[in-house]
């Protein structure tokens, strides 16, 4: 039976604003399937985003949604989670929103290990504002502000999240559509700060400038560079050159922030 996405979409909101072939729609479908698998109550689920193409996603979702200032999704979401710890909070944002403008909010949310899920749709560029390079743009890639190629090395967002203290880090791609919902579902069920990086395709502002002739070519490129974590264990460093690992990259258990904070309140009350 076909999956009924309409149940989770605000009536009258489609068609969405994303360009033809943009992978954000595929990720949104994955998020909807994950919410359905985990069985989240849409009235008790907050989806928070900043500004950008990816950050338009909550507007289509029939949940509690919050569209905030650029890069500040993690800050607003922390507020929501602290005020209502029983709520399930999911953050959605792009690579520029999450790691440049909101970079500090992102790493500190990781450090606190607050029970939220951050889905980063990494399309390697600032799409909405006209294709400026972001911290995730690969070295040498062309953007509207780097017409001769980007001189900066790119962030490895998953490694950044692990280094900052996130307790669940996974990576998928918009080509591997079947895997997205499984990764997000596992991230939602994990108690702690979970980061799911989805490598996405932006045919309009990234693809055209970087010699991808079509969306299909971008999708096939994602297919070629992705290596599942288990398969990578058997591969040599030379074979892994230029590849990216997909799947669950890191998972650990650590005290969660809202429950630790509740204990602190109890201790303070007892000390009075």
């Amino acid at each position: 039976m076909a999956f009924d996405y309409d149940k989770y979409i605000r009536p009258g909101k489609l068609p969405h604003i994303w360009c033809p072939g943009c992978g954000h729609g595929i990720v949104m479908k994955g998020l909807i399937r994950a919410i359905d698998t985990v069985g989240l109550d849409t009235k008790n689920t907050a989806i928070v985003s900043g500004i950008g193409c990816a950050s338009r996603l909550p507007g289509y979702m029939d949940c509690c949604t919050l569209h905030t200032a650029h890069g500040r999704a993690a800050a607003f979401a922390t507020g929501v989670k602290m005020a209502k710890p029983e709520m399930d909070v999911i953050l959605v944002g792009g690579d520029g929103d999450g790691t440049a403008i909101g970079g500090n909010h992102f790493i500190h949310a990781c450090r606190r290990n607050i029970n939220m899920t951050y889905i980063i749709l990494n399309n390697k560029i600032y799409g909405m504002t006209g294709g400026q390079f972001s911290p995730a743009t690969p070295t040498g890639a062309k953007a509207s502000t780097t017409p001769y190629g980007n001189p900066d090395p790119a962030f490895d967002i998953a490694k950044l999240a692990i280094g900052a203290g996130a307790t669940f880090v996974a990576r998928g791609t918009s080509f591997h559509a079947n895997q997205i919902d499984k990764l997000i579902a596992e991230a939602i069920q994990h108690k702690g700060f979970s980061v799911v990086e989805i490598l996405d395709d932006c045919p309009t502002t990234y693809g055209r400038r970087n010699k991808f002739k079509s969306v299909i070519e971008m999708m096939n490129h994602l297919k070629d560079i992705a290596v599942p974590v288990k398969a990578a264990e058997k591969m040599s460093p030379e074979q892994l050159e230029g590849k990216i690992l997909t799947g669950v990259l890191f998972k650990e258990e650590r005290p969660e922030y809202t429950s630790e904070y509740a204990k602190l309140i109890e201790r303070a009350k007892a000390a009075k």
């Binding site: 076909a2 068609p15 969405h16 954000h24 595929i26 079947n178």
Partner: peptide, 8 residues
């Protein structure tokens, strides 16, 4: 159906 980004 799985890959259509536009819910179409």
């Amino acid at each position: 159906e799985l890959r259509c980004p536009d819910f179409a």
